[in-house]
Structure formats: structure tokens, C-alpha cells
């Protein structure tokens, strides 16, 4: 564990609390893509199967894994049941098969071992890299976002961004160790946030509303 990864994980936690806060206080999931949230459930469930195989890393690691699985399922409950009327499927139109198909194929080809757990692990890494696309697509379509929603996305983006210095740090402190699947997918994932952060820094953090140029 190093500071980059710790702050990254805390930022990931923060993003979930920001999202829960947004839904609970506005009593609405307007502006949130349920497709992206469903993909996150799939990401956590397929990656954290090692909770049940005895590959114990640390209490911290296991607690975080359980939290990510639990909170992502809870968010789906809020969106699908409790605040269902505020969920507008007509603007959440990204086709999930464009994500699930290619990531499944990639996982079958590029994995560390052709076993059930390892293929699912690789799938979860590729899936996480692009899971934000339905949300960004929705943002692009509507051209605007509530400020709290942009803080959610910023926290997620910071989490991903900080994993990169974490890998650089680990490379130098752990004898040249590198996890190419995680690193390549992580760089792709971080790159997807670049446009968002441009608008976030130039508008939202200057006190303006998040609005994309027409």
C-alpha cells in the first residue's frame, strides 16, 4: 500500500458516498446512468470472487471489496426500485453489447491464466475501463449535469488517475513488478476522463454550471 493507492481508494469511496448523497437528498437519480451503475456491479462481482477462494490479502482489502459490492447493489436498488420514476431510460441509450462483447472477447484472449477466475478477473478490469461510457454518453446527450453529479465523476476520475503514479511507485519499489493488464486498461480508463476534467476545471470549479458547448 502506498499513499497514491490509499488516496485513490478513498476517492473511490468518496465517489460512492457523493452518489448516494445526491440520490438521497434530491430523492432522484436524474442524470445518473443506470447502465454504468449495472456495469459496476458486474465489475465488482466478477473481480472480487477471490473473497471466496481464500486468497486473502488484508482486512482492508476484504472490507473494501465487500463495501464496493454492497454499495453498488444498493445503488441499483435505489435506481430501480425506490426512485424508479426519476430514472429516464430514454436518455440512457448507450448499447451495452458494444461494451460487454468486446471486453468478454478481450478477457478470453488476454488473461494471465486461462482459468475461470483469471478470465473473469481480466474481464472485470477491461469492463471497468469502459464502464463509465454510458454515463459520459448520457452527459454528452443532455449537454449538462448537476454539480453534485460532476463531483461524483471527478472523484471517480481522481481514483483512476492516482492508480497510475501508484503503479510507477510500485514499479520502482517492488523490483520492476508490473501488471500489464491493469496498467493498460487503467491508462485507457483514465484517458476517458480527460474531456470531462477539462470542463470540470474550467467551469464547475469556477462556480459555473457544467454545460457542454452546443
Amino acid at each position: 500500500m502506498n499513499l497514491f493507492r490509499l488516496v485513490a481508494d478513498l476517492s473511490h469511496l468518496a465517489s460512492i458516498f457523493i452518489l448516494l448523497h445526491k440520490i438521497q437528498t434530491t430523492r432522484s437519480c436524474r442524470g445518473i446512468s443506470i447502465k454504468t451503475q449495472l456495469l459496476y456491479v458486474l465489475v465488482f462481482v466478477t473481480r472480487y470472487l477471490d473473497l471466496f477462494t481464500g486468497d486473502f490479502v488484508s482486512i482492508y482489502n476484504s472490507v473494501m471489496k465487500l463495501f464496493f459490492i454492497g454499495s453498488s447493489c444498493y445503488i441499483i436498488y435505489l435506481m430501480r426500485i425506490k426512485y424508479k420514476p426519476t430514472n429516464d431510460p430514454s436518455i440512457d441509450t448507450f448499447r451495452l453489447e458494444y461494451i460487454l462483447g468486446p471486453t468478454a472477447v478481450l478477457a478470453l484472449i488476454f488473461n494471465y491464466k486461462f482459468t475461470f477466475l483469471e478470465v473473469l478477473w481480466a474481464f472485470s478490469i477491461y469492463l471497468e475501463a469502459v464502464a463509465i461510457l454510458p454515463q459520459l454518453f448520457m452527459l454528452q446527450r443532455t449537454g449538462e449535469a448537476e454539480t453534485i453529479t460532476t463531483h461524483y465523476l471527478a472523484a471517480l476520475g481522481i481514483y483512476r488517475g492516482l492508480y497510475i503514479p501508484n503503479w510507477i511507485y510500485r514499479y520502482f519499489t517492488e523490483g520492476g513488478a508490473i501488471d500489464p493488464i491493469a496498467v493498460v486498461a487503467g491508462i485507457v480508463q483514465t484517458a476517458l476522463y480527460v474531456d470531462f476534467f477539462y470542463v470540470y476545471f474550467t467551469k464547475v470549479l469556477q462556480g459555473q454550471k457544467f454545460e457542454l458547448p452546443a
Binding site: 482489502n61 464496493f68 501488471d179 491493469a182
Partner: peptide
Amino acid sequence: DGDGHSHDEL
């Protein structure tokens, strides 16, 4: 697991 892919990250 020795090959550098211990999956110890979240």
C-alpha cells in the same frame, strides 16, 4: 503468487 500478478489491488 510469484509472477507479479497477485491481484492485491482493488
